[in-house]
């Protein structure tokens, strides 16, 4: 018996969302009085022994370089086989792009019930019940998994990473890799920007900024906070900003620790993309903007005055604290 956590990597580096999944899996293992083990596919530059600090006793690896590209069919086959070999009764994923691609496939292969989008530890007091977000973050559902093997895909940024001392034992899994039917021909990464879906802090601008020429102050604030940039749908539709920055129901759904919305009124379609954020700050000239109802902090004021001033004050504090 074990809890097996899939530790997802990109370009040889284990993703931050996977550390959350590892910490979560470790806590699930404690609840079930068993061990937490991890699976890493592909070649990684990280030393996987260090996954021990997230409470992982054993890391299973299949280091074939072909596995640095995700093929859901190949991955599902390997993960399911690894789950069998390690006697896993719970398999944990992060519900990031990779988790969305493979968690359901692995669950189907294992004939295991799946909770995708989990946001809390399972309640194992009677049965196995996992809380997940539903209705785009407006509600929760408690789902009972009724199969011997359970698959949980954890929402990014919904569970704290816990770190302790410890090294993991590394074991190379000897499993035949099925032939891939998917041939990757091109990868296009946006360089020099923090990926929106991975960011801790997101600074977002809306129509209230009046035009693309006014984004300098948004970029300056984002730079001070090491934040990713985002925008509302009208801004992307007007081509003021690239489409990969669009958050909302039709764009990306994100859940950063801090979301700063500037000149965005907060239409329900926009909220559907951001209301899983931990803290929301709204800066808007209109005191009636619906976004203030979902915000933790707000300033009713002119962004063109408030934002540069905010960046200046933040920089002052950063400067002060560095001494």
């Amino acid at each position: 018996m074990s809890v097996l956590i899939f530790a997802d990597q990109a370009d040889g580096i284990i993703k931050k969302a996977s550390f959350e999944a590892l910490s979560y899996g470790n806590k699930v293992a404690a609840l079930l009085d068993t061990t937490a083990e991890a699976l890493v596919l592909g070649n990684v530059t990280d030393n996987v022994v260090t996954l021990g600090k997230y409470g992982i006793s054993k890391v299973h690896t299949i280091t074939d370089i072909s596995l640095n590209h995700l093929d859901t069919q190949v991955y599902a086959s390997l993960i399911a086989e690894a789950a069998g070999k390690t006697g896993a009764t719970v398999v944990v994923f992060s519900q990031n792009q990779t988790g969305k691609a493979i968690a359901a496939r692995v669950a189907a292969k294992l004939k295991a019930g799946l909770v995708a989008g989990a946001c809390a530890l399972p309640d194992v007091s009677s049965g196995f019940v996992v809380k997940k977000t539903v209705f785009s973050g407006k509600a929760y559902a408690n789902i009972s998994i009724n199969t011997p093997i359970k698959v949980i895909s954890l929402n990014p940024n919904s569970f704290p990473v816990t770190v302790a001392e410890g090294n993991a034992e590394v074991s190379v899994l000897n499993i035949n890799i099925p032939e891939s039917k998917v041939k990757v021909t091109n990868i296009n990464k946006i360089v020099g920007e923090i990926p929106l879906t991975e960011a801790d802090i997101v600074v977002s601008g809306g129509r209230g900024l009046r035009g693309p020429e006014n984004w300098g102050m948004i970029e300056a604030l984002a730079q001070s906070l090491h934040a990713a940039l985002a925008c509302s749908r009208p801004v992307a539709d007007a081509n003021w900003r690239p489409h990969h920055e669009h958050v909302g129901q039709t764009g990306y759904q994100i859940a950063p620790n801090l979301y700063i919305a500037i000149g965005i009124s907060g239409a329900i379609q926009h909220l559907a993309g951001v209301n899983r954020s931990k803290v929301i700050v709204v800066i808007n000239t209109d005191p009636e903007a619906p976004f203030f109802k979902s915000a933790d902090y707000g300033i009713v004021g002119d962004a063109f005055v408030v934002v540069p001033k905010l960046t200046e004050e933040i920089n002052k504090l950063i400067e002060k604290n560095s001494h």
């Binding site: 509600a139 929760y140 559902a141 009972s144 998994i145 109802k293 004050e313």
Partner: peptide, 30 residues
Amino acid sequence: TFTSVVNYEVKPAKTSVKLIAADNVAELAR
């Protein structure tokens, strides 16, 4: 079927926004 819904919970509304005066931006930074 492999799963069943036990129950639902509506996400509690945010208590209320903490408004900071536009001439006191330093407070938001703090």
